[in-house]
Design a protein around this nucleic acid. Structure first.
Lengths: 252, 252
DNA sequence: GACAACTTCACCACTGTGTGGAAAGATGGG
DNA sequence: CCCATCTTTCCACACAGTGGTGAAGTTGTC
């Protein structure tokens, strides 16, 4: 847990409030005051004071079981989804992609060592499993590889170091060299593919959205093994690259 | 704009940061520093300092055009959606409702003088217009009436006072007495209905989710005029009440 | 190309806000 | 009923947050 720099602007109280909010981003159920304080690494009294404000402002809710994220958080996300140039550029492209392929098309963005689902348009057969917007998914499985392939060498090293195990949904494990080899294939081809890596029975093809400032987004189509037979992959790959390019073009 | 009390806990800087975030909740495009400061009613220097922190923490993004909401906001919303007892209770019920009626089922919650879309399950015919989660909709049109009908007299008075015009999507206007009469009908029947009030060509039926602490959520089904013929409404009304009750029962 | 208008940034001395230890109050298990 | 754990309230001090000011950067107009 090496603490990094605290460079330019600093505001302790705000910074701490965000720390507390981030505690909620992770866990699934209501948390007690003491627990939140512990996880955020803050004194209890301070934690409580901050939670009080957050609660008053609808950012946090509360019941007998403790504190939970509050409805107020919804608006920010909605505002982000509505104003993001990337998303506005991607939306029609995803529609087209879903219509043209009959598969479910999604847009991901890399955040730290994860990727996040930003948008999704269902194809002919809506997927059976949920994949709600905002979900955090790994970078080393499925469409994550399209993003991992775009990392700089330094980033990649850092990423691999914090990855403890690399096991796919089908139980197979991948070692570092295999993975690096795959990433370089992805860079060559311009798209990634996966079968049952993150979700058993599901296949996907993905392409990074080119971006001068280092690509951090990717488009993907997903479907069952039957929807995405092996021999359809190259064609889908090309279509995805076209889509990724279209998104990049339309992004201001 | 009567300022209310600022009782218990107060933390100026945090409070102000939230004010700034709320500025973004409203507007559609990137905002300049000066503009944000103006809207939040804060000194420029202070605004900038806060924005700096928010940006560093991914809550705000920035480009040549100014500041926009940041991706970081997504996680909070996701956490809320995942942990809200109301939502977890509602999800399966909405599924059933959509399956049983073939219509699109949604859950709303009242927040201030608005209602917010919390969840939506598409029916047989997915709706043509978007209604993304987090969207703020009026309380006096469509399914909003089911929520308005649950307000206390005081709340209702306050609500009507700040409502400047009451015009439906079809152009017809409603006066105060008409509206109050309709609300009391809704209370009697236990469900509300609307045709082309908020969205032309669309009809909906909605029922409030009972809650000891004053109902603030409602279930709804929507469809075209053809999907929801007049004579189907009473039956749907009953089904919605059942669904609303089921949600209330399942909510811890 | 020179001005004007606007926007953002860095500085810094003052002071009021946020801090957190400690003690009182709830809650609940055995 | 008592003890262990969690939550809330209190308060005096110190330092974090404040915001006026002016310089630096950007955009648009004539």
């Amino acid at each position: 847990m090496a603490e990094s720099a605290k460079p330019a602007t600093s505001m302790r109280s705000l910074e701490r409030a965000i720390d507390i909010l981030e505690v909620f981003d992770a866990s699934q159920h209501a948390l007690r005051l003491t627990e939140i304080a512990r996880r955020a690494g803050l004194p209890i009294a301070t934690t409580q004071r901050i939670l009080g404000v957050l609660e008053a402002r609808g950012r946090v809710e509360r019941d007998a079981n403790g504190y939970r994220p509050g409805v107020g958080l919804i608006f920010g996300a909605h505002a982000y989804l509505a104003t993001s140039p990337l998303l506005n550029a991607a939306r029609p492209v995803l529609q087209d992609l879903a219509a043209a392929t009959g598969l479910t098309a999604s847009l991901f963005k890399r955040i730290g060592w994860f990727r996040v689902v930003l948008a999704r348009v269902d194809g002919a057969t809506p997927l059976r499993y949920e994949l709600p917007i905002g979900e955090r998914l790994p970078l080393h499985l499925g469409a994550g590889k399209a993003l991992a392939a775009q990392m700089t060498d330094d980033e990649l090293a850092g990423f691999l170091d914090q990855l403890d195990s690399h096991t796919r949904a089908d139980g197979s494990t991948v070692d570092r060299d295999q993975f690096l080899a795959e990433l370089s294939t992805i860079r060559e081809l311009g798209y990634s593919q996966a079968r049952g890596e993150r979700e058993p029975g599901m296949a996907s093809v993905a392409a990074p959205v080119p971006d001068p400032a280092g690509a951090s987004a990717a488009v993907q189509v997903t479907g069952t093994y039957t929807d995405v037979p092996e021999d359809r992959v190259p064609q889908l790959g090309v279509e995805l690259q076209r889509a990724a390019l279209a998104i990049a073009r339309r992004t201001p």
